[in-house]
Design a protein around this nucleic acid. Structure first.
Lengths: 205, 205
DNA sequence: TGTACATCAGTGAACGCGCGTTCACTGATGTAC
DNA sequence: TGTACATCAGTGAACGCGCGTTCACTGATGTAC
């Protein structure tokens, strides 16, 4: 911690980052306002210059997470050209990559128990993130034989759920089981089988 | 609460049930030893006659959950005869049914952050539960065309992850999204597509 | 059947702790003259 | 360039709270005689 005077400089963001480190290290319940303040070398009361309280700080962490998440998904989508299929697969991979690379954000978003109700700004940015996956699903939808075409929202939900389940069950020292396979491989294979079921991959691949 | 004297009768199980109700109502973090004791009409100190502390009470809740879960999965498996396929599908449905019917147990097992490390008894009963799904997957494995046959542990993990993701994301007033579809339908459709991808369902169903 | 007694499940008071939050304050910063 | 002053980001002490846990105790239960 460099010498700083009475004033911090950018305490707001420093608190967000302290919270992220705490959450990544000890889980969403390990985060407390007091410890975040201490990690930022500041009195707990100083937090109230920047946030209305504990919940708003946590919400800001999640908000930044959704922002990064949406950008990452969008990047993966664009980058996943040339085909709608490869773009879609890329967003699935991006989900897991995000969870791995930004564990603090991920847990704040999905495991901290904060509610999107009554926080319109947070809900909006969350929708932005899920919008990317639905966009990818819609684009892909055109390539699905009509007789087995589910609504795009449905198979984007499937991929989302599968990805989330893999993260929750198999990426940490999680309950239930230790990972029988590398999570990336598990997800990749699962998505592959699923897309084959949709008729989007050759049945003998 | 009926009149009871100084002695409770079966406080141990009453505390487990109080904890379950608290968890189901307010989430795993809403559970405290003190509130569970109060709900059972007893002083917090009385808890220590039956458990070494808060963690052991929570672990017992989870243990009973795994027990019920394993029994339910096993029942679904047997009941899913006549074919390996229908038995497998039944276990998938049982996962979601369990989460719905026993939300307190479910959250204690998967969302309370308790660790299976250093609790061999809990780990054993957890393995019993996942063992059923693997058994179902292994039986099904024989029917998969060899060139697209993943290890049974892998597709049981896929189904487990998909089910878990659906529960986490779409069954409560969850973060991320409100459910676009009834979770049961979502899971059923997802498993269907997945099994078609494995060559276990006709491609045109 | 009646009494003495051991057991042990529960009480209730107390503890130390860390939490989120409040408040009057202080002192560094940067602007006006 | 130098001084006076307003701003406001941070301090530090204090609060009430509920938590998990401990301890000496009490009184209901059930057994031995």
């Amino acid at each position: 911690m460099s010498k700083r005077g009475y004033h911090h400089g950018n305490l707001r963001q420093a608190l967000v980052e302290a919270a992220l480190a705490l959450i990544a290290e000890k889980g969403p319940q390990g985060f407390t306002l007091s410890e975040a303040a201490k990690a930022a070398d500041v009195t707990p009361a100083a937090v109230y210059r920047h946030f209305t309280g504990r919940d708003e700080l946590l919400a800001e962490v999640a908000r930044q997470g959704y922002e990064i998440f949406a950008a990452l998904m969008d990047y993966a989508y664009d980058n996943g050209q040339p085909t709608a299929l490869s773009a879609f697969e890329a967003t699935g991979r991006a989900y897991l990559a995000f969870a791995r690379k930004y564990p603090g954000h991920y847990q704040a978003m999905f495991e901290s128990g904060l509610s999107l109700q009554g926080n319109p700004e947070l809900a909006a940015v969350a929708n932005k993130a899920s919008g990317v996956l639905e966009k990818a699903a819609t684009a892909l939808s055109a390539h699905i034989p009509p007789e087995k075409r589910p609504p795009p929202a449905m198979f984007s939900a499937h991929i989302w759920a599968l990805s989330h389940g893999v993260v929750e069950l198999f990426t940490r020292g999680a309950p239930g089981t230790r990972s029988p396979f590398p999570p990336e491989d598990l997800l990749e294979a699962g998505i592959g089988i699923y897309l084959r079921g949709l008729g989007l991959l050759p049945p003998d691949a």
